[in-house]
Amino acid sequence: MSEINQPLSILEVNHIKKTFGTFDAVTDLTFKLHPQETLGLLGPNGAGKTTTLRMLAGFLPPTQGEIFVNGFSLVGHPILSRKQIGYLPENVPLYLDMTVKEFLIFIANMKRLHKQKRKEELDRVLNFLSLESVESHLIGKLSKGFKQRVGLAQAILGKPKLILLDEPTSGLDPEQTVEMRQLIKKLNKDSSVILSTHLLSEVEKVADRVLIMNQGTILASGKPSELTDRLKVKRYYRLGVKGNDEKVMVLLKSITGVESVLKLKSLEEYNFYRIVSNPKAEILSQVLEKLVHDHIEIREMVEEESKLEDVFLALVRNQEKASTHI
């Protein structure tokens, strides 16, 4: 097996494991990352997201297993493989005593960009992250949002094939978070991206694929939409009908598979409800049948996308259950 074959994947992670003392922070992780793919690493505090990214960035050597970046082994070719990686560590560490430009030149030199390319890249990155207005400001004096952008700037400098971002939106206000996500979405033009987060909504918004982690292992993986589909815990429907509120409530609750009914609002003569059902029960036809039978006029009935939050909670709960059984 040649190490330098043209890879189909930007990143190949083979059964990596990280043990601190006797504690397994990451146990047996295997996955691949395709060109231009954005992967979300999702998990609660202590899941092992940072530890994983630190291994992928070449900071922590895995206790076991191998990592190949664009075909190069992180251990065998540390410099070559790291040249393909841009990494934004958790909490955005920066040299606060440098100006934005001085810092980025330092990083460009460390990444060994050639002088001509360096200038080009510097301009591109400053422009991409709208940092021109603060390029001669001290990093220590910048707002949190700008610091985060400087952190992202150093990561993407030199157009690395693989960009690793550890909780890139943590600590930002809602507006800055939205801006940051928009920037991250644009990164996959030149690179593959892995970002970690404990916000499920974030993954839904920016990732093509998600790995859900807990206690150092992958609980589930897939497209955010697939995952909600496959592992759906509950189904949610929104129903709008005309007429008698109490009668409808009773009727809906009598259907097998319906777990709860919540009245959302009344609009003109219509009432709107949220129905939560067991995922295995097909309640749609039953609901329609009964409503028609009782001559209740239906305005709408739609299945709402279930939230990744629920999937996630269920997965974590299942895992915890499993571990307490042992």
Partner: peptide
């Protein structure tokens, strides 16, 4: 303390 060591040691340097 600042965490910059992680930044420094993940750049392509030894």
């Amino acid at each position: 303390k600042q965490g910059t060591l992680e930044l420094l040691l993940t750049l392509p340097v030894r």
